[in-house]
Design a protein around this nucleic acid. Structure first.
Lengths: 328, 328
DNA sequence: TTGTAAGCGTTATCAC
DNA sequence: GTGATAACGCTTACAA
């Protein structure tokens, strides 16, 4: 900056004014500065600027798992809305690991981001609260409402009910749920599954899974050929459902003829014709936008009470669910 | 920090020493400081630290498209290696838009990242060079070797040859290529396709596409039912191949019986049993790790000459490729 | 309209 | 070991 000022024959302060396009600077000097900056390839130091300005115009997005298409679509929404507000979006990857997530949060706080958007975080309430003391926090796909923290959810209970009731209506009575392990939404979906089953006087069965594609392959394999093999499987998410589907195919079980499968999220893989996975849609893009907008209310309008937005999931019926074979 | 110092009854400088765990500080004071910091929930200001230290211990990763699983797997590799070297990894999303990419690069430079890892960037040589004047740059999946910039590639020419020759050996003579539009690797794969076809005395046909899933649906639809429908399609990447597959299914064309499809990247969707997409594997994780390691040579060992690592792609034969119907 | 100078929250170099 | 004090690169009153 010093160099730019010299080259343009002005003071450092004036360079600063030009760069923040202040109106009160003569065109002549402005051009001189801009030219000098361009010729020198000058790039302002954001650390210095942020330090001096006491703001960063940056928001931090923590993504639970970069591999799951669900998350990238939420990020799209966040970015779209952030751009409208001239905010920079920094992304950190939690890598499905709570420790890394906590580190990422710390990093963001140390960077003094103006808000923190957590997408499907695995942190516990204490960690979330402690983060929220440093910056406005909003949780997307939170699994449930945290009383003191803003959340955007697509009602997991409703979604799971939609899925299970769909299978029940098709005539299934033996419906297995593969849960999402440590994923934050796992409990809500599992509970709703159990609830829906009980409502229909059916015996709930939950297989412990994870939210990775291969999380359920081994246990499913062991069920094949036994009387324990259900006629329908409701998986925690599409990735897991795809893994189940793969395993059933490898094991020679026909889908949906012998076993129906329902996923969750309606990611693009569910829509692939060859998979044609029945699933529960979450309005991911809207969730992202709404998250950004909601957290902005804290920044710009000084809202302090927590707000919870709950969007409605919908059932997307495709080819992996059908009436059970015993009925046909 | 001031507050922490007061609370611990020491000077600010000592707090700094403790936080950077300098050896020359008494255990007593060290604990006093640590306790005070914890109780106050103190988080150091990275901007101030970076400014004072003149380094950021941060590297920037620019991802062409967060939706394509190819990229997230490269990022994994980068992150794994970065962690070994105590480097923070910041991710910015290019969103398949060159302008946003340039902005992202500028942001990283302004943040004074210690290195820039560009995954499948769309920028032109001038932009890349100008970035490299500010920080070490490495391009992953660069499409080709940029003379003055480090690159990691998985030889696109070889990969495309593998794909096309595989189809030729199966007996196909009418092989269409759907290219990747603005994607940086599009040209190399297209050129290799043309080359492989010419070598076999076959007429190359290229359909202009993009690197999005739906990029090729419309033009494919128009070919169905005409004499122009090829017996095999080599798509720029798996996403595009999946789109082609969807369109053919929707149009009632059997795959691979009537038309074979080969993709590129070997992302997880290609491995899904229902898709079982024949494709070209790129060692994504290794590419990411190698990228990080290579760029570290510049930072830590002061290497200045550009280096190009070219990894070998391999053909992964699955269910979407078979001999053409006319031969069976 | 432009320049001077103080301050942002750290680290780092000194003396003590 | 510990505590002043000067950077670091920028912004922003305030003065000129």
């Amino acid at each position: 900056m010093e160099t730019v000022a010299e080259k343009a024959g002005v003071s450092r302060a004036l360079v600063s004014l030009v760069l923040n396009n202040s109106p009160k600077v003569s065109d002549q000097k402005r051009n001189a500065v801009l030219n000098a900056a361009r010729e020198l390839g000058y790039q302002p130091n954001l650390h210095a600027r942020n330090l001096a300005q006491q703001r960063t115009q940056t928001i931090g997005v923590l993504v639970n798992d970069l591999h799951n298409p669900f998350f990238s679509e939420v990020v799209d929404g966040v970015e779209a809305e952030a751009e409208l507000n001239q905010l920079r979006v920094l992304i950190l990857n939690g890598g499905r690991d709570p420790e890394r997530e906590q580190q990422a949060i710390d990093t963001f706080i140390q960077f003094r981001v103006e808000a923190l958007v957590l997408i499907g975080p695995r942190l516990d309430d204490e960690q979330l609260l402690s983060a929220s003391r440093h910056a406005p926090v909003i949780i997307v796909a939170a699994g449930r409402n945290h009383p003191d923290i803003d959340t955007i959810t697509a009602d997991d209970a409703t979604g799971a009910h939609l899925a299970v009731n769909h299978l029940i209506q098709l005539g299934h009575r033996s419906i297995l749920h593969i849960d999402g392990g440590a994923n934050i939404s796992a409990k809500a979906r599992r509970d709703a599954y159990v609830d829906a089953m009980r409502n229909a006087q059916l015996e709930p069965r939950v297989l412990i899974g994870s939210d990775e594609e291969d999380g359920a392959r081994q246990p499913i394999r062991e069920l094949v050929g036994t009387a324990e093999l259900p006629t329908a499987i409701f998986a925690f998410n599409d990735l897991l459902a795809a893994g189940v589907l793969d395993e059933l195919i490898d094991s020679g079980v026909a889908v949906p003829d012998q076993v129906s499968i329902v996923g969750y999220d309606n990611t693009f893989i569910a829509g692939l014709r060859r998979l044609s996975l029945t699933t529960v849609n979450q309005p991911r893009h809207d969730m992202g936008r709404l998250a950004m907008r909601t957290v902005l209310e804290r920044i710009e309008e000084g809202r302090v009470e927590a707000v919870h937005h709950d969007l409605q999931p919908t059932l997307v019926q495709r080819g992996t669910s059908a009436a059970p074979a015993t009925l046909s």
